[in-house]
Nucleic acid binder design. Structure first.
Lengths: 224, 224, 224, 224
DNA sequence: TATGAATGAGGCTTCATTCAT
DNA sequence: CATGAATGAAGCCTCATTCAT
């Protein structure tokens, strides 16, 4: 998925030129490396130097494109949120029966967070930062408002057709799904270390995926 | 709840005097200040200088008692884990009916994590660190093994008397309780910012406390 | 003889300007200042800050070019050894009669060590360090292997033509020359202080230069 | 040789007392440990803390007995010089024939410096210090003046009876003996490292001991 | 456009030393 | 006499960033 696709293309490039001259590609490469770095070390633990070293382009370009470390982090944060919300919109849940729709949303969230540890770690890091970068980004907030609408529609349909006997606010349901899926990844290391249970393993993942879906669906279906 | 308990004790001491020859108290004060600092900024964002400034004693004492920043962090980590596991052991759940016992454990976890944001943030930070400090501390691992035993006994009793129709591994149940209670605090800032729902408020907290308990107990009671 | 050679060159440069984009020159200046500092105070007594202050460039550049204090010291050590061994190779002793060749080598060593107190002090310092930096440097060892070959050739010729009646290992001869020339400089201060004899003075130096040459040549010439 | 001789003596000591109360013994122990430390690391590399740790008594006692690091170093320096000059006075060379007397003095110096690396290293260190401590100590200067008298008497007798055909100043002869014996120890590490010749080995030591004696005696005996 | 060189501010830590008991 | 606790000053080094070409 990561952009090395068209290597060697661009015939308009002089053979003796020092570097490729594709600004957007350079930008994307920096962004990709930075995401890894921020995900691995958080904002204050991340090193601009390390990002520079791992990028084909020079460190100076980071400042050229993103202004400073904070600007780069903000760009990564927006990028990462755009990823999940973009994926969510492809789900087409409105045509499924409520229980199935909700199950699919839960599964999707589970799979996405499991597959995108970077996303999880950057949001953890953002919470450590006091969410001060998120607060600056109108774009991220816009991106996220859609999930609640999706959930709201499923809940409404489920309540209407009697599949769900429990009345829940969309934000509360999203909270539970998110908590259970996110924590598995965000706290994987301490949890595994302490309880000797590898949350990343196939076995535990499969078990937890089922358990989480059943827990939440069970909550919606049973009123007491 | 955070340690201001014995401030101002020791009346025989001149208030402005610099030298306090009370090693344990000095140690504890550093630990308390450090916990705040590490909780607020994570390991790499924390500043030894800031901890020194906010301590009545000199910065130098940090190194005297804890060796270095890492040693101090490790001490904080152990302290913080000892706190929750110590509190858990006072619950006396073995005499309660299984459902009530489990409900109480869930409520306790909810309340504890809500009241101890430091604990939550330090564990988040530890996950950002790759759990490398936790890995060094046998003490923390020992402390934590007890929770699973407590949960195991409740589950066994509930299965035996028919209160619980679902068979769950203790570690999986602990995972769910922990995830739901922890995420509320660890991700409070981004969640609130994005969804405009203040997870720290009394109203939402009360609602979630009930919801979490019902969700988990519901899962245990209903087999499908 | 110490490196002020090219000071004030580069007339096209504004005298008060801070940024000099001449990396090799910057590197050399740091090296020169560092040699003085390490020679004067040894490794542990030397202060990186002092080196920084005495350099036109910023202290930060020390780390830019040499990594850390140890790296800088190692560079100085290599530089200093390269100096003497480089000079030795210009002697062209193979065309002289053995006695004269040996005399010239002794004189050279005497003069070089007298003129390069830095060299002597840094090697003293290295011995105080347990030779731990030298051990890391393959380069220094390579540089030094040549002297023994030079001495070996002179000894062989002298034995062959009967000038030398004593059979000596090259390393032992080098030891004596080095000891007598080195000690004069390395122990100058304590020796002068205790015996009231200024080893650095012209008078004593001239006398010792003759004495050392005669002592060693005498040893080679007389068998008993 | 180092003072633990009378352990457990002193019956007047209360059994419950925290530590032995023998000031002179405490002083000597500190001195002994400090000598090792200064010999190993030089003045600036030596650590008061390390001396404190390796002494049965507490670090505070160092300051009690010696004032500060400099005072302790000075005491060590005097102690170390007193050692060699004290030994030299037991030689009784005046009754031996000049050549034998001189040979014995050379051998003594060789053996003493070989056996007392601490002595050598502390004097090296003192030279790195600019001999500033030595300069403060009248006592050390007094101690050392005697060697030259001893040498002077041997030389006079040798010149008188024709054993020595060379006229040498006592200080110059002392210089040569000292240089050859001292350098072997002071520069042992760099020399061995570079030339792969272990100066501390029995084999090389025996060879050098003979060589040094013959070199110097040869110089005295042969006029050209 | 792109880059190596340069940098001030501030980070963590160690040092010899003194205080209070 | 003896000791653990406490300390200011200064050490080495890293950080994000900007300059000059």
């Amino acid at each position: 998925m990561d952009g090395e696709a068209s290597a060697g293309v661009r015939p308009d490039q002089a053979p003796g030129s020092r570097r490729r001259l594709d600004p957007e590609r350079t930008r994307q490469e920096i962004l990709r490396v930075a995401r890894k770095e921020f995900a691995e070390h958080g904002f204050s633990g991340a090193r601009v130097d390390r990002i520079g070293e791992r990028t084909a382009t020079a460190k100076r370009m980071i400042y050229y494109y993103f202004g400073n470390k904070e600007g780069l982090y903000l760009a990564v944060l927006e990028d990462v949120y755009a990823g999940i919300r973009g994926s969510e919109t492809t789900l087409e849940l409105d045509d499924l029966p409520p229980i199935e729709a909700m199950g699919r949303l839960i599964d999707f969230t589970f799979d996405y967070e499991r597959a995108n540890e970077d996303f999880v770690r950057i949001i953890s890091s953002e919470n450590m930062n006091g969410a001060r970068f998120l607060r600056r980004s109108q774009r991220v907030r816009d991106l996220n408002s859609k999930v609640l609408e999706v959930i709201g529609r499923i809940l409404a349909r489920g309540t209407a057709d009697g599949s769900f006997r429990r009345s829940v606010a969309p934000v509360d349901l999203h909270f539970m799904v998110s908590a259970l899926c996110f924590y598995r990844v965000s706290n994987r290391l301490t949890f595994s270390e302490i309880f000797g249970c590898d949350l990343a393993s196939e076995e535990v993942s499969a078990r937890h995926k089922r358990m989480i879906r059943e827990t939440i669906l069970g909550y919606l279906r049973h009123a007491d």
